[in-house]
Nucleic acid binder design. Structure first.
Lengths: 212, 212
DNA sequence: TAGATTGTTAATCGATTAACAATC
DNA sequence: TAGATTGTTAATCGATTAACAATC
């Protein structure tokens, strides 16, 4: 078991996929799986899968492969699927509402416990059984209710301010849908979903398709 | 001017940010900018910026830096901002509707020209001045109207089928919001936005925060 | 001219791929 | 035992960072 260095982000990003495909094998009543077979299913190479899994210990048996159930459990634990994570959404515009409705919070063991917005027209609306509260209620809410993840769906202008408020009030995970490069302290975990950037990247790749 | 190798994706992904910050400098009436100053603003290193820009030719002048206007124009051209890209959305559920409402198509020179869904309850709805059509109209629509980008917001089950239809009918860019790893031919440009994976990555990073 | 800053080559870092002894 | 497959070390590949001669 090595833990000298940080686990690389690319490894972390592949874990959800391993999880998904292992679940499929489990449903198909497969007991043991080789890195090779998991590779065929998931599109990664056997080498890479073994290399990735070794970050988390010796999970397989030479000659036999991996026990599907055990490996799935292990990865679930690494992903933290056992613990319920509490979230709030800040900004209940199109994106905020879509996130609220889209994510299958139950299945992934998340719980959405609050939605906040500055727009008086939106405050009071009910989204997924949750009443949208005014942004001015945010701090007092956080003082009472410990929250794990803040989902920032505000306008560009307000994103950094909201992020600061969240961090100051004990939130350690931020899922950022605004187009701003948020500045947060080292301790905070930040995951960005930048739709504008993604769309422009697609466009650029298309534009250069011929010689790229 | 070198063009031996493909331009790396990481470079492409940084271009929208350069574009954004250059626009800021232009608004502030800055004429010339050094890679150093752009670095301070954008959070990249001066070295990286120069390295990136050199993929597209010699754009600056030693000793003087880059002309803001010229560089902005060049990057706009690289991103393909001059051409109008036509898009359709397939799947008008929460995500599809959010995308339709969220993206500032006008500013980015995109045009949303069609929305398709299989659900009879949604067909006929008006979103952003566009009437949602039945998915069965998709092929005949594509035969008449050339489309650049297809935005897949369907359920997991239908995503691959839709992708095939799009590619078969001449679409070269796919913006995929489904959680499926789509298989498309080499020629097609695919950009994935996998919200489930992003959320699980965030969770995993939080879970491992202490020793990660 | 002296200082600033580029374009580009070289060095470093990190991630992926290949290879193989150890093990079932 | 022979074949399969792991864990892990070594080799390769690619991207970032550093360095510097050339240029304004």
């Amino acid at each position: 078991m090595k833990r000298k260095k940080k686990i690389p982000r690319p490894v972390i990003r592949r874990l959800p996929k391993y999880h998904r495909y292992l679940k499929e094998f489990l449903i198909d009543d497969v007991d043991r799986i080789s890195s090779k077979k998991l590779g065929v299913r998931s599109g990664f190479t056997a080498n890479q899968i073994r290399q990735d899994l070794n970050w988390f210990g010796e999970l397989g048996q030479p000659g036999l492969g991996y026990n599907v159930k055990e490996l799935l459990n292990k990865i679930s634990r690494i992903l933290g699927l056992g613990e319920k994570y509490k979230m709030i959404i800040i900004g209940a515009g199109n994106v905020g509402q879509a996130i609220a409705s889209y994510i299958d919070f139950q299945v992934l063991n998340f719980k959405l416990v609050g939605i906040f917005d500055a727009n008086p027209k939106i405050i009071g609306l009910k989204i997924q059984d949750i009443t949208v509260e005014g942004i001015d209620q945010l701090v007092s809410f956080l003082k009472v209710t410990p929250i794990d993840i803040g989902i920032i769906c505000t306008t560009t202008n307000n994103a950094q301010m909201v992020a600061d408020t969240l961090v100051d009030n004990g939130i350690i995970g931020i899922w950022n849908f605004s187009s701003v490069d948020l500045e947060v302290e080292e301790e905070t975990v930040l995951e960005n979903v930048n739709l504008n950037q993604s769309l422009l990247t697609l466009r650029c790749l298309m534009n250069h398709r011929t010689y790229l």
